Computed example of a mutant assay.
Amino acid sequence: MFVRAESAFTGSSALDERNRAYQPAVAILGLQLGYTQGPWTGRVFVQNLTDRRRVNGLIFDNLAFGRDGNYYGPIDTSRVVGAEISMQF
């Protein structure tokens, strides 16, 4: 049996090169539970346990229709729950 806990802490950060917008600090947590027997391993996991969504790259203005007051950028994934079975040989 094994248990694994993960944490990633990101401080407050600017979202563009001109420092017009910031996002607050965030903690992303993960958890895994698993079992190993011989060459087989099974595990269940949850990534982003707190379900915090954050921008993970630079933001930009609306390029097609001029500045509309919104910023656009890539967003991290939300909570992911999964199961995995693997075999080593």
Rank of each mutant, 00 (worst) to 15 (best):
R79W: 01
Q23N: 09
Q32L: 06
E17N: 14
N48L: 10
E17H: 14
T41M: 14
Y71L: 10
N62E: 03
G73N: 08
N70C: 03
V81I: 13
G69F: 13
Q37D: 12
E17I: 03
Q47V: 04
Y35R: 12
I85H: 06
S12N: 13
G82R: 11
V80T: 04
L49Q: 00
F60Q: 15
G66M: 10
F60T: 12
A25Y: 03
F9Y: 15
T41I: 01
L33M: 09
R54K: 11
N19M: 10
L33I: 07
A83Q: 01
I28V: 09
A14F: 13
F2C: 02
N19K: 10
F45S: 02
N48V: 03
F9W: 11
G34S: 12
V46D: 01
F2K: 08
N56P: 00
I59D: 02
Y35K: 13
W40N: 05
Q47K: 15
F2D: 02
Q32W: 13
R43F: 12
Q23M: 06
D51C: 06
V81D: 01
L29W: 11
E17L: 11
L31I: 03
T50D: 10
Q47M: 11
M1Y: 11
F60R: 15
R53H: 12
A64E: 04
A64N: 05
L49E: 00
N48Y: 15
V26G: 03
P24W: 14
Y72T: 00
L49R: 06
D16Y: 09
L49A: 04
A8D: 02
L31N: 03
M1E: 02
N56M: 12
P24V: 00
Q88K: 14
N62K: 04
Q23S: 06
N62R: 10
L29K: 11
F45L: 03
S12V: 01
A25Q: 10
P24L: 09
V46F: 15
S13D: 07
S7H: 08
L58F: 14
G34F: 07
A83M: 11
A83G: 14
L49H: 02
Q47D: 05
Q23R: 09
G57V: 00
V80E: 05
P24F: 12
G34A: 12
S78C: 09
T50A: 12
R67Y: 02
F45N: 02
G11D: 05
P39M: 10
Q88G: 08
D61C: 02
P39R: 15
R20D: 00
R20M: 04
L15F: 08
L29D: 01
D68M: 07
L49Y: 04
R20E: 05
G34T: 06
V44W: 04
L31S: 06
P39C: 10
A21K: 06
Q32H: 11
R67W: 01
T77F: 07
A5E: 04
A21C: 03
S13I: 04
Q32T: 03
G69K: 13
N56F: 14
G82E: 02
R18M: 07
V81K: 09
T77I: 04
F65A: 08
E84I: 00
A21F: 14
Y71R: 15
I28M: 12
T50K: 14
F9P: 00
V80Q: 09
T10R: 07
G30N: 08
V81G: 07
Y22L: 08
